[in-house]
Design a protein around this nucleic acid. Structure first.
Length: 117
DNA sequence: CAGATGACCTGCT
DNA sequence: CAGCAGGCCATCT
């Protein structure tokens, strides 16, 4: 892993995504498209999703459980240690999740482009 | 060295 | 109103 340790030269897209996710306050949730839009890539939502998977390779901890899809569904729950780890992580922060669907998602939605601006 | 894979979203037909 | 295709980065084998 990290065969090419020369990644320290500049912040890559993945590292940038990880940083934004780390800025997400507890009890709040954001979406891939929101981060992608904040970074300036409209069609880069896919890159954000891949970045989240690569989050486990990041040196710092990345609360990927706060990042969900545009529908408010826990799309990445399947990649967690357990299929319910993501849901429990959100519930631990006070976020109600029913059938992988975040309740009041519209209210808990945290947009970096709007909050951080 | 090159090919393939991977947690998505938006716009057009 | 609904379905299809396009677009992008990094890491691993």
């Amino acid at each position: 892993m990290l065969s090419s340790a020369a990644t320290d030269k500049h912040r890559n897209f993945f590292q940038d995504v990880h940083e934004v996710v780390r800025l997400v306050p507890p009890g709040r949730v954001t979406t891939y498209g929101a981060i992608a839009h904040y970074l300036g890539a409209r069609h880069g939502a896919r890159l954000v999703g891949w970045a989240m998977m690569a989050a486990h390779t990041a040196d710092a901890y990345v609360p990927a459980h706060r990042v969900i899809n545009r529908q408010g569904l826990l799309t990445g729950r399947q990649h967690y240690a357990t299929p319910t780890a993501m849901q429990e992580a959100l519930e631990a922060e006070g976020v109600r999740v029913v059938d992988d669907q975040v309740q009041d998602f519209n209210q808990l939605y945290w947009d970096p482009s709007t909050e951080l601006a």
